[in-house]
Simulated assay, not measured.
Amino acid sequence: MKIDIYTIIGIVLGFTLFIGLVIYFFQHKFFFHAEMLPPDFKFAYDNLKAEEVIVEPEPGAKINYLHFIVDQPKGVVIYLKGNTKSIKGWGKFAIDFTRLGYDVIMMDYRGFGKSTGKRTVEAMKRDCQFIYDLVKKQFSEESIVVYGRSLGSGFAARLAAKNNPRLLILTSPLYSLLRTIHRYLPFMPAKPFLRYNIPTFHYLKNVRCPIKIIHGSDDGLVPLSTAVDLSEINPDLTRLYVILKAGHINIHQFEEYHRVMEEIFNERNVPIDPEKTSIGYSHRN
């Protein structure tokens, strides 16, 4: 049986449309692996003091967040987590910042934990800004650090671009959800079907504070090349730290990750005098 070129084109277009519709209608299941918590759930963590807060950024939506508290804080970290579970499990990571003398604000996105409301990318952006504005009532922006891990990197970069925090830290960041799809479906024109694109790369162009990017060399989900590409967008403000042997979900299990955190938070920006370095030297003479 002979198949003409138009039949082949029709099959390809039909298959592409089918995949596109799957992406459109099921992407919330691909991108968000939420854990919901009952209203009466009690948060408790060893060696951490936390206050639970529920706020209503807009009618029909409630955002649950934890405020981890230290005595005489040096500042506060707004921690935007990845796409799995809830702050029930993520909360333990606040210790990485409380040990350095910083309060931590950690929120659950809509549909995660006790947070409710229709989840759209625009609504999630508004929620993040709403939390940032609440934090500004307690802390000056000069003492606010915005931290984003994995999926949270896009929301963190946007907050830093729209506001003036002291510092932006991105751990295992995504370039964009569109690029993530293209990595697995390189043939697919996914942009028309994408409802949750979060273009970290776009927001970084407008960030005015120092940017620290931390990435594992063995990250199999988001390759190290992603972090390299992101670090080149706003190079004068960006420093990239590579944690050797670390993957996507275990980067915090490496001591070097915590040494990097100490370096970042204790950093003092000392001007470099090119005349007193080898910057102008050449091997040719």
Rank of each mutant, 00 (worst) to 15 (best):
L221E: 13
I198P: 01
S217D: 10
N206V: 01
D219M: 06
K212L: 00
E232H: 14
T200V: 00
R208G: 13
F201I: 14
V222G: 00
V207M: 09
I211K: 06
I214N: 02
V228W: 14
N197F: 04
G216M: 09
I233W: 07
Y203F: 15
K212P: 00
L230M: 11
P199S: 08
I213D: 02
I213Y: 11
S225G: 10
S231V: 00
V207I: 13
S231Q: 09
D219L: 03
G220P: 11
L224W: 13
I214W: 03
G216R: 01
I213S: 04
T226N: 12
K191T: 11
L204I: 01
G216P: 03
I233D: 09
S225P: 01
Y196S: 09
P223R: 04
L194K: 05
H215R: 09
V228R: 14
D218F: 10
L194W: 08
R208H: 13
R208D: 14
C209Q: 07
S217G: 08
P192N: 04
V207H: 04
N206R: 12
K212G: 00
D229I: 10
N206C: 01
Y196E: 11
G216D: 10
L224S: 08
T226F: 05
H202C: 07
K205Y: 07
V222Y: 04
S225F: 04
I213W: 01
K212W: 03
L230V: 09
I233R: 08
G216A: 07
K212N: 11
N197V: 01
S217E: 14
K205A: 09
Y203K: 11
A227I: 07
G220Q: 13
V222F: 02
Y196R: 09
I198Y: 12
P192W: 08
F201M: 12
K191P: 03
T226K: 03
K205W: 08
I198A: 15
D219S: 00
I198N: 15
I198H: 14
A227M: 05
L224F: 15
T226M: 10
L230F: 08
Y203C: 07
G220D: 12
I214P: 01
K212A: 06
P192Y: 09
A190Y: 07
T226S: 14
P199I: 03
G216K: 01
I198R: 13
G216S: 11
V222P: 00
E232G: 08
